[in-house]
Amino acid sequence: MTQPTLDDQAFKTELAGLIPHLRAFARSLCGNATAADDLAQEAMLKAWKARESYQSGTNLKAWTFTILRNLFYSEKRRSWRRQQLDPEVAEATLVSNDDPSSALDLLALRTGLTVLPEDQREALILVGAGGLSYEETAEICGCAVGTIKSRVSRARKALAEIIENSSGGYAGDGKLRASEAFDDIMKQADELSSGSSADV
């Protein structure tokens, strides 16, 4: 027995409601806001075209994330492929935050995310921030639930290491220059990633 499909109007409303999440997931994959919006728009349009294959009652967010992710990985030559953290984003992270130690942690997290292997990063974002279950994330990534659990746990461990190493020396020093902090965190992240296979 198949579930009835949503009518176009209902589908459109639900899809529009998911745009913020498509943008956030795309941003985590691309790192660059313009490229991310480009990817999110294409994913939205693809989801719209494929609406008849969506089974109502299943999780539309997970379904659209699967589309976005497939698009991202299938078009490797497109501009939205992730680049290193933009130093301007790094600078902005530091200056927009009143609490210097929290700003450094946030910067270390952003930087740490860029050096995680892609599979670990996406698992961590989906489970840790996107509000998806391990099961839904496994479906989106096309792998076993146990694999997702181990990716998330390795990602958490690696990030904790990066953040610990980068913020330890700065406690109480609010005058640290943003560029120095950025260089230092990049160095920590490089050291960490050179020990593992970052290029998966």
Binding site: R23, A24, I125, A129
Partner: peptide, 14 residues
């Protein structure tokens, strides 16, 4: 703390 900040990064966009 990492969990909180991850959500913060994500929610900044949403």
């Amino acid at each position: 703390r990492i969990g909180d900040q991850l959500r913060r990064l994500y929610d900044e966009v949403t």
